[in-house]
């Protein structure tokens, strides 16, 4: 459709202004994280000079963000692996098993898309405590897996149903077991759907504050976001360090996002829409 010059300019003006509104706080965060305290206050918006990385080193070493990163990566990777593995197994069964039970189980899983797990926090806390996993990153794993399974089952079941049946029947004729068919035929075909499931769960798990805040007490078990949540109490006056820690926690996700923005947008939106 042809548009007038005026209409086009208006479109660009709105998008550019909003982009600046989005980028300005992020720019302020990153630029000031490498400034000295007094430069932060005197000139918050100019590019940093002289550069200082003391905020990053002190957050990484004294602030134990090295530890927090290790914990967060562990929790996120293990949860995602199990969400994908257990979710795809369940989906394979749900896509093939014809019975009223499978319909019921499918609806049970899908109901979890609409109901926030936080409402069950009190009992989850009791369960994790009776398992002796309070104040332990391992205690977060089952919660995150349970939280990720509904979307995983929903996306993967729909995807498996689109796999041509001849492929699986041929394997049956060759005498392959269901496990073998799942593992060496279905699972490799699921790759694009698995990417969606991973992206959809990666962000909420990595960014979660609620469960670490409630479950974790000691420093050795903290996740990155829980570490960030302690910043204001501890280093109230050291702005270089606060901004460094904020940047540190945001940059890995930002890089990942910029590298794969198309998949991120698709995954997160698909996940949300299917709710």
């Amino acid at each position: 459709m042809k548009r007038s010059f005026g209409a086009k300019s208006a479109i660009y003006a709105i998008l550019v202004v909003w982009s600046l509104v989005v980028l300005f706080p992020l720019y302020t965060m990153v630029v000031n994280s490498v400034k000295r305290q007094r430069d932060i206050f005197r000139n918050p918006f100019i590019p940093p000079w002289p550069l200082t990385f003391e905020g990053f080193t002190s957050a990484w070493q004294d602030g134990r963000f090295d530890l927090y990163f290790r914990n967060s990566i562990f929790v996120t990777v293990v949860s995602l692996l199990l969400i994908v593995f257990l979710g795809s197994m369940a989906s394979y069964a749900l896509a093939n098993w014809r019975s009223k039970w499978s319909t019921f189980i499918f609806i049970l899983f899908v109901a979890g898309l609409m109901i926030p797990i936080r409402l069950g926090t009190i009992n989850i806390f009791q369960i994790v405590q009776s398992l002796n996993l309070i104040d332990n990153v391992f205690g977060l794993l089952p919660v995150y897996i349970a939280m990720g399974l509904p979307i995983s089952v929903f996306v993967l079941t729909s995807f498996i149903r689109t796999i041509p049946h001849e492929l699986i029947d041929a394997a049956h004729v060759d005498g392959a077991s269901e496990w073998r068919i799942y593992w060496s035929i279905v699972l490799p075909l699921l790759r694009p759907a698995i990417a969606t499931v991973i992206i959809f769960n990666l962000i909420p798990i990595w960014n979660d504050l609620w469960f670490p805040l409630i479950f974790i007490r000691s420093e050795e078990q903290r996740t990155v976001i829980l570490g960030v949540s302690m910043l204001f109490g501890q280093y109230q006056s050291n702005w270089t360090r606060i901004l460094s820690a904020l940047s540190l926690s945001a940059i890995p996700i930002l890089i990942l996002y910029i590298l794969m923005s198309k998949q991120f947008i698709k995954g997160l939106t698909a996940g949300a829409v299917k709710g």
Binding site: L86, I122, I127, A146
Partner: peptide
């Protein structure tokens, strides 16, 4: 095939709710 996912989902999400 269903059991592991179902147990975790029921145990840590549905039942706690």
């Amino acid at each position: 095939f269903l059991l592991p996912a179902l147990l975790i989902y029921l145990g840590f999400m549905a039942a706690p709710l």
